[in-house]
């Protein structure tokens, strides 16, 4: 690695690597457009820039195939449309906002890119026909050619240039670190509230929102990760287990929040210091460095000696802590497997 690059954070390095990949793809597309001399050759450049609107490896691959498929279907529909309707009619002008609306409505509602690509392929040539009176058949053929070329450039660039840096695992780690640290914060807060040391922190909602935002971010990563190069099955299993585990964690965390909002510690069931130790122990085990560490086994912990048979809010609280510890162990196994060190 170049010495000046080692000073930059890994996230920034990955972003620069992605930028190199996109810039090269765009430059090649522009050169090809000039070299081919096609009238609508700038669609090659447009295709590359639209495919890279979300520059993650998996989504670039998925969008590339979706765009080609959508354009092909749009082409067939376009020919059908041209055969049925008087294509040079100005009445079509009123269809344009409708199709434009449908493109975004379908895309935002379903996140299905090939469907919206189909509509885009109908929309753009119609625009040209209405405004510039151009032969729709030639236009549609140009469109599919340019889209195929643009898609090929994007796919080759994605495969050949800094492939690893555009993978999702690094971003997953960044988000997972925030989630784990936030879970530890929430746990610390609710434990203090339960033992009566302080009132429920107003920022708790903010932290919980941040956890949810990061989980949604990982959900999006998962949707891209499915299409990345490499072992798809293993990656899918990893994310599935992660989501099951993290939603389980949230389930028990919510229980603990509800108890600490409504009840206080019953000292006859567990001593204050003992509870503090247990909570600190779980907080430690949720720290990402401990979850990712291969050598650490000290967090295999069970609250067996406590009287869990009794059904009081304190017992429910302790039971929730046990379950959280189990979830932390599950997460540790998962993350350690992903990090063979």
């Amino acid at each position: 690695m170049l010495p000046f690059l080692s000073k930059i954070s890994e996230e920034k390095r990955n972003t620069i690597a992605q930028a190199v990949c996109i810039s090269l793809a765009l430059t090649v597309a522009v050169i090809l457009y000039w070299a081919m001399g096609m009238k609508y050759g700038y669609w090659i450049v447009l295709t590359v820039s639209i495919i890279y609107a979300f520059p993650q490896q998996g989504i670039v691959i998925k969008r590339t195939f979706d765009r080609v498929l959508g354009t092909f279907i749009g082409l067939l529909l376009g020919f059908g449309f041209a055969a049925v309707f008087p294509i040079d009619s100005h009445m079509l002008l009123f269809f344009l906002p409708l199709i434009w609306f449908a493109i975004f409505y379908i895309n935002l509602l379903t996140a299905n890119y090939w469907l919206s690509s189909t509509l885009v392929t109908l929309f753009i040539p119609l625009c040209f026909v209405v405004f510039f009176k151009i032969d729709v058949h030639l236009l549609l053929i140009d469109r599919i050619l340019c889209t195929a070329l643009g898609a090929a450039i994007a796919l080759v660039a994605q495969y050949a240039i800094f492939r690893k840096s555009t993978g999702t695992f690094k971003r997953f780690e960044d988000d997972a670190k925030v989630i784990c640290s936030d879970i530890a914060d929430v746990l610390d807060n609710i434990a203090k509230c339960f033992i009566g040391e302080k009132k429920m922190n107003r920022d708790l909602q903010k932290v919980l929102r941040e956890i949810m935002t990061k989980i949604v971010s990982i959900e999006n990563l998962y949707s891209y990760a499915k299409y990345e190069f490499g072992d798809k099955k293993k990656r899918e299993e990893f994310y599935t287990d992660f989501f099951r585990n993290i939603f389980g964690t949230l389930h028990y965390l919510r229980k603990l929040i509800a108890i600490s909002k409504n009840d206080r510690l019953d000292a006859s069931l567990v001593q204050l210091d003992e509870l503090k130790d247990i909570v600190n122990f779980i907080i430690e085990s949720y720290k990402y460095e401990n979850l990712a560490s291969a050598s650490n086994t000290k967090f295999d912990f069970k609250i067996e000696k406590l009287k869990l048979g009794e059904a009081t809010p304190t017992a429910f609280f302790l039971d929730g802590l046990v379950k959280l510890q189990e979830k932390a162990n599950g997460l540790r196994t998962l993350i350690r497997e992903a990090h063979p060190d």
């Binding site: 972003t15 992605q18 820039s49 609107a53 979300f54």
Partner: peptide, 23 residues
């Protein structure tokens, strides 16, 4: 084109803006 897009895509903070408006 190469250096301008390299520079703007390298920005973590404003990447969303660039990605949407680049076409």
């Amino acid at each position: 084109i190469f250096f301008a897009s390299l520079l703007i895509y390298s920005s973590v903070k404003y990447r969303n803006v660039v990605c949407v408006t680049m076409p």
